[in-house]
């Protein structure tokens, strides 16, 4: 077989194939339900109800979507420039650490929130800067270095929680001292369990969209991602663009951790993120790396997680079905996107 580019893909092809990928994922969900001995049609309904069936469920889904919007944006920005940042998990914790460092009494209102957000972004950006400089200067593959940094960061967090940041009132649980009230993000609507992090995530998505479509940097990021050689030939500072992309990407991922601590949890623990950094890759790919699309897919992915938890309790299908579905969706989607641009021919 051979792949042949399609000159002008029809809209039916460009929209139909990604839709087909999602339908195929639903098919896999039903198959897994059958394997688990549950009713395949019922579990789709149970997942949907669990995610969106009540005000409480919707708020839970939006809360879960908040860090995913940030990490999804971080990945989308980086992947657009073909910068393979797989270290969003570590950058997330870097942001969370800054929220605790500055939010436990070092600063008071009204400075604490903006300063700690900025510090979080700087910390996340700094963490990605190393791997990117290693890539541009020495040609070290950033995938492996960013992945390895995730493990180092988790151990560092574990050290902080048992040492310098340990909550003396923690009853032996490894968690940090709680944030002071001034360092907490207020609720979006009084009485509803949804914090300002969600709104900030959407604002961040809009800002990233503006950067990508309306600024020189956005143009350069796309050019470098499509063809670094051509971009270099056209006189673009390819390495400088990579570094700027990294700073943006690392900063966005750090806000995920910052908003989880300042908005949702109020303290740092080593289970702050159940893999939000990795799930961000799925969020970004499903959104075709579009920043506004990330908001939609993050809510979708969060819904699958929250819905699967509820379904699992009711139908007895292991909750890991959510992880399987999302990985399946990712693989189907990258294949579908390719097939919108090429067709398979014999020979």
């Amino acid at each position: 077989m051979r792949l042949e580019p399609i000159a002008n893909p029809s809209p039916a092809r460009r929209l139909g194939l990604p839709a087909l990928a999602l339908v195929a994922t639903l098919g896999v969900a039903m198959l897994l339900a059958l394997v688990a001995g549950a009713n395949p049609f019922a579990i789709l309904g149970q997942i949907a109800t669990g995610a969106l069936g009540s005000k409480l469920a919707i708020l839970e889904t939006l809360n879960r979507a908040t860090p995913l919007i940030f990490t999804g944006l971080a990945i989308a920005v980086a992947f657009r420039a073909k910068l393979w940042n797989i270290g969003a998990e570590a950058q997330l914790y870097a942001g969370a650490i800054m929220a605790v460092v500055l939010g436990t009494g070092a600063l008071g209102s009204p400075l604490v929130l903006p300063v700690s957000a900025l510090a979080a972004m700087l910390a996340g950006a700094a963490l990605l800067l190393g791997p990117v400089l290693l890539k541009t200067r020495l040609g070290v593959d950033e995938v492996v270095t960013t992945l390895l940094l995730n493990f180092i960061m988790l151990l560092f967090v574990s050290y902080l929680l048992e040492g310098p940041m340990k909550d003396p009132m923690g009853m032996g649980w490894p968690k940090s001292t709680p944030l002071i009230p001034e360092a907490r993000l207020p609720r979006l609507v009084e009485g509803l369990r949804l914090h300002w992090g969600f709104a900030l995530a959407i604002i961040a998505a809009v800002i990233v969209w503006v950067i990508q479509t309306r600024t020189t940097l956005g143009f350069e990021i796309r050019a470098v991602g499509q063809n670094p050689e051509a971009a270099r030939f056209a006189g673009m500072p390819v390495n400088a663009v990579m570094v700027k992309t990294a700073l943006l990407s690392g900063g966005l991922a750090a806000l995920a951790g910052w908003s989880e601590v300042a908005g949702l949890k109020g303290h740092l623990s080593s289970d702050l993120s159940p893999g939000f950094g990795y799930t961000g890759i799925i969020v970004a790919m499903l959104a075709l790396l579009h920043p506004l699309g990330v908001v939609v897919t993050a809510i979708f992915v969060a819904g699958i997680f929250v819905g699967s938890d509820a379904m699992s309790r009711a139908a007895g299908v292991p909750t890991y079905i959510a992880d399987m579905l999302l990985a399946t969706a990712l693989l189907f989607m990258v294949l579908a996107i390719l097939l919108t641009k090429v067709r398979v021919v014999r020979g």
């Binding site: 292991p318 890991y320 992880d323 990712l330 693989l331």
Partner: peptide, 12 residues
């Protein structure tokens, strides 16, 4: 994607 899928399959 394969790593996420394989890990999730084992857990499931």
């Amino acid at each position: 994607g394969v790593t996420l899928f394989a890990t999730a399959s084992a857990s499931f």
